[in-house]
């Protein structure tokens, strides 16, 4: 192990992740933020809400917003299928502890990624917006993206206050 192969930042030590399928891609999300995985439940559409978070679900008596990372990564949105799952995540929003749900086309497994299997994102050469990728991991011989969930939601919240969204988007409480 040379000095060079040490993790680039403190946050990239050995981490536990849950792997999931989104469209044709496999993603990994830090297990520490995962609260639970739900079978698709009845999703309430929020008319006028941006595509990224156009739904609400009931998670044990709490109303939780449902987000779709496929919008962030420009993937086509397909209806939920039998393998689809909702990942319930603990995530601070605007500085307040919050719970959000994200859609996955399938959830695979929880696995440990050693720090030497993690690398930072090359500035060029990926088809995904690099600011939304925390790292790339090698899991079972495949490259798997770790989306930077806090960055994705922060960017959405920031963008929302800067521009109006949709016909009903003039937010009084923005």
């Amino acid at each position: 192990m040379t000095l060079m192969s040490r993790p680039a930042s403190r946050s990239l030590g050995n981490i536990d992740v849950v792997t999931l399928r989104l469209g044709q891609d496999t993603l990994a999300i830090r297990a520490e933020m995962l609260r639970e995985v739900l079978e698709p439940v009845s999703i309430t559409r929020v008319p006028g809400a941006p595509e990224f978070c156009c739904g609400l679900v009931n998670v044990r008596g709490t109303v939780v917003p449902l987000s779709d990372l496929r919008v962030t990564f420009g993937m086509p949105r397909t209806p939920l299928g039998p393998d689809s799952r909702i990942l319930v995540l603990d995530l601070p929003l605007s500085g307040r502890a919050s719970v959000v749900g994200i859609v996955a086309d399938a959830v695979h497994e929880v696995t440990r990624v050693e720090s030497h299997m993690l690398q930072t994102v090359p500035a060029v050469g990926t088809r995904w917006p690099p600011q939304f990728i925390e790292a790339i991991a090698r899991i079972g011989g495949n490259f798997v993206m770790l989306p930077d969930i806090p960055a994705i939601f922060a960017a959405f919240l920031g963008g929302q206050s800067a521009t109006t969204v949709g016909p009903q988007g003039q937010g009084a409480a923005a």
Binding site: C53, L56, G169, G171
Partner: peptide
């Protein structure tokens, strides 16, 4: 949630 702050047609949700 703050994610829906831009949606002014609704004041909240209920179960």
């Amino acid at each position: 949630s703050p994610l829906h702050a831009g949606v002014s047609t609704f004041s909240g949700a209920t179960i």
